[in-house]
Computed example of a mutant assay.
Amino acid sequence: MTQDFFNRLVAAAASRWGLLIVVTKGAVAASQDAGADTLIRDHFTDWWVGKTMVSRVATPFSHSDYRTLYRKDDPFMKALDD
């Protein structure tokens, strides 16, 4: 994993350690469901899409402007849903 990925993971978790663990645990479960031997970014994306029902291109793990896409007070809601 790269520093870019870790920055995206922190953004996805809204800088909260407990939520970071939830996101990571969900990605591990997604990798197990897929029968994968290695945890990759796509597993985090798969979990996020399943949790939020947003497009794969609109996740913190795939969107180019991920830092502004989600609100820190409710990271599972799109910022545009205000």
Rank of each mutant, 00 (worst) to 15 (best):
T2A: 08
P60V: 12
T2L: 09
F61M: 10
D42H: 14
K72R: 14
W48R: 00
S64T: 03
K51H: 00
L39E: 01
L69I: 02
Y66C: 05
F6R: 15
W48T: 10
A34D: 11
D82V: 09
Q3G: 12
R16H: 09
R56K: 15
V49R: 10
W47Y: 12
Y66T: 04
F44T: 00
T52N: 05
P60G: 04
A30K: 08
A79I: 13
S64N: 06
D82E: 11
F76N: 00
S64A: 11
P75A: 09
T59F: 00
A27P: 04
M77E: 12
L19W: 06
T68F: 01
A58V: 03
A34Q: 05
M1Q: 11
I40T: 15
L9I: 06
A14E: 03
D33V: 04
N7Q: 11
V57T: 15
A36G: 01
L19S: 13
A79D: 02
L19A: 03
K25S: 05
D33G: 06
S31D: 06
D81A: 13
L80R: 13
T59D: 09
D81W: 04
A27M: 06
T38G: 09
A36L: 00
P75H: 02
A79Q: 07
I40P: 06
T68D: 00
H43A: 01
W17I: 09
G18V: 04
A36H: 10
K72I: 13
V22T: 14
D37G: 13
R56C: 05
I40L: 13
Y66W: 10
D82R: 12
W47K: 02
V23M: 01
